[in-house]
Design a protein around this nucleic acid. Structure first.
Lengths: 236, 236
DNA sequence: CCTTGTGAATCTATTCACAGCG
DNA sequence: CGCTGTGAATAGATTCACAAGG
């Protein structure tokens, strides 16, 4: 209830909630753009395709930011979510593998916007090394050690599957403690390294599963999900 | 218990499990490649960074495929997972947006392998329309209606955020009932349309959250996850 | 009124622990 | 013995439903 604590990180936030926060954030950004100064949990819930009570519970974990009878102040809520997510600070990111995927990532709207800054690019292809993307020169993997003194907070693996483990090892070797892997390959990293995957093929297979079901079972049971990535849980 | 039913889709498979099946599949493929004819739930669990009981429960939902004292037959298990996921059949896929991301997707290892076949490509850029990728010609969006007679099972939205909703509407308009959205934009589609997102920016923000935590709380509590998309966790 | 914030109830998923079988 | 398969126990997430505040 009291929301004006100077130390505002009292509650434990379940991962299921953490994964939804960026979704709310995005919806808020869109609503803000279209001129809504306030937003209700019901509106947010409809856009995110979740239950309104869930939205309220999620947001209440960050603090009591709403106004009864009115809803949430859009801009203020956005800033609070940013703070909870830690995207109010700057996260240096290194991308390894500057093929189509790497280029798409570096140029992507999600990257520059929300606190993530590409500070290093690596590849092994001599045709690519030396190229400048978004103001950053692509270096050869041989020079990865150059970032060891001040390692990026997040390493992105955007190489072919065959190189992914080797690249992951190298990134971990220079001190990177969080890896986002786009290669369709299961990686092994030390326990202290955070590892997440973004995986086209898994999402397609999940779709295949539900499409099969539908085909078999006549037609209904569309498994609608807020964000496909969502059902996260747990931590250690 | 009895596993030799001719009709083998008796049990309800929870989504949490569905999302893990492709992960097991990938691990099995790698183990198979490196010569393991059988695999135990413990091995599978270690590679996927999950609990062995979870692996067994997941697999038991598909049927009783293991041999006590030995484990699972790698090849047989793979075929059973494929069947459960429905990737033993062919899924025609249309990709809209042939920029770096679209090209990465069309060329990606996850695509061609596992039952997904790109049958249609669309863009609006005249420099791109007419280009042939993987044997398929890129058509202008104006010609989307051409697929209406036999719509692809899955539509992939790989456009910039600004075009995503419009493209989604168009795909739904020609009869596509499952959309995989890569654009950083929340989409609205009719209830019968399955919608999943693959979202770099969300994954980065989740990482940011846990990295912030770590930074604040000294050092520990690495939220290790098997596949970012799914539950995960294990040792600390 | 309207809408938040939240205990209590429910539903879902994970893990334990062991019987059963090769 | 070792490892699967699974009921029972636990933990976790979601939803309900309503009191309280604007």
């Amino acid at each position: 209830m009291a929301a004006d604590q100077p130390e505002p990180r009292p509650r434990r936030i379940p991962e299921a909630t953490v994964v939804r926060l960026p979704v709310y954030q995005r919806i808020l950004a869109e609503m803000s753009r279209s001129g809504s100064a306030t937003v209700s949990s019901e509106q947010l819930a409809t856009a995110a395709r979740v239950n309104a009570a869930k939205v309220r519970k999620d947001l209440s974990l960050l603090g009591s930011f709403g106004t009864r009878g009115t809803g949430y102040d859009t801009a203020f809520l956005m800033s609070q979510i940013d703070r909870a997510l830690g995207v109010d600070r700057d996260w240096p990111v290194a991308v390894v593998g500057i093929g189509n995927l790497g280029r798409a990532l570096v140029g992507s709207e999600g990257f520059g916007s929300r606190g993530f800054r590409v500070t290093a690019l690596f590849d092994v292809d001599p045709d690519v090394v030396g190229e400048v993307l978004g103001g950053v020169e692509v270096r050869h993997m041989d020079r990865l050690a150059e970032v060891a003194a001040d390692p990026p907070s997040i390493g992105v693996v955007a190489t072919p599957a065959g190189a992914a483990q080797e690249v992951a090892d190298a990134l971990v070797g220079v001190g990177v403690t969080a890896l986002l892997n786009f290669a369709p390959r299961v990686l092994t990293v030390p326990a202290h390294v955070m590892l997440r995957y973004v995986d086209l093929s898994i999402e397609l297979q999940v779709m295949s599963f539900y499409q099969s079901r539908r085909a078999e079972m006549g037609l209904d049971v569309a498994p609608l999900r807020a964000l496909g990535l969502t059902p996260g849980q747990d931590d250690g």
